[in-house]
Design a protein around this nucleic acid. Structure first.
Lengths: 115, 115
DNA sequence: ATACTTACTAACAAAAAGTAACTACGTTAC
DNA sequence: GTAACGTAGTTACTTTTTGTTAGTAAGTAT
C-alpha cells in the first residue's frame, strides 16, 4: 500500500463519492425521501448494487433508512441526513458544470436508449 | 441496459468524477501543472491507472498534456484546461464538506501508514 | 392455492483495479 | 564503451468490483 500526502478526510470523502452510483443516488435523494424501487426505477443501477451503495451510505451517515411495517408490502424509505444534505451544493455544482461543459457523443446517446 | 430518466450530461459528468482517482488527480492539478512522476508520488495510485485516467481526462478535455523534449529525460506535464479549472469550486466544496463531516476510523488511519 | 408486490440476497460471469516486472530512450558514472 | 539511472509509460497476471439473472421471505389480491 502506498502512502499519500493528502488529507485523509478529503481522500475518504472522494473515495465515497468516487464510487459508481453514489453521486447519482444522492442526487435522486435530494428531491426527497424515496423508496428502494423508486430509486431502482430512476437510475440505471441494479438492485444488488443499489442495496450495497445504500448500505455504505447509511453506514457513513449520509443516508437514513426507515422501514414502514404498517402498510403491506413493507415499504422502506431512504432519505438524506444532515451530512447528506450538506452535499447539495456540491452535487448541484457538478450538475451545472456538466450542463456547461459536457458534450455528448454517439456512445452516450446510445446509453440512454432502451436495449 | 437500463434507461434512466436523468439528464445525460449530468450522468456522464458523474460517471467521470465517479471513477476511482479522477477526483484526486484533478485536485492535485489544481495546484498547478505537474509531471507524471509528481502525480504518481503524491497519490496512492499506480502508474498503470494514473496513465489510464490521464488519458481519459485528456480525451474528455479536462486535462492538457504537454511533452518537453528540450530537456532530458523527456518531461511530460499535465495541466487543467478551462473545463478542468471550472471544476475547482466543486472540488473545493468536496474538500470542505469532508473537513466538516467525515470522521476517520481505525481502518482509514491504517490506510495512511506505509505498509 | 396461485400469482403478485417489495426489498432484498446468492451465484456466477465480465469488467475494472491492483501489483510487479519490463520497455524505450537519452544521460551520466565509471 | 558499457552499465546503471531517470522518466514515462506498457504488459502480463491476480484480485476486487460490477453487472446480470434468478431466487427468497412476508404479506396481499383473486
Amino acid at each position: 500500500m502506498k502512502q499519500s500526502s493528502l488529507c485523509p478526510k478529503f481522500e475518504k470523502g472522494m473515495q465515497l463519492l468516487g464510487k459508481r452510483w453514489t453521486g447519482l443516488i444522492l442526487y435522486q435523494l435530494l428531491s426527497g425521501p424515496q423508496r428502494f424501487c423508486a430509486l431502482e426505477g430512476a437510475l440505471p443501477v441494479s438492485g444488488r448494487l443499489l442495496s450495497e451503495r445504500l448500505k455504505d451510505l447509511e453506514k457513513e451517515g449520509l443516508v437514513h433508512r426507515q422501514v414502514f411495517t404498517d402498510s403491506a408490502p413493507v415499504r422502506v424509505e431512504y432519505s438524506l441526513t444532515e451530512m447528506g444534505k450538506a452535499l447539495e451544493p456540491v452535487i448541484k455544482g457538478i450538475e451545472s458544470w456538466a450542463q456547461s461543459w459536457i458534450e455528448l457523443d454517439a456512445a452516450d446517446m446510445a446509453d440512454h436508449s432502451v436495449e
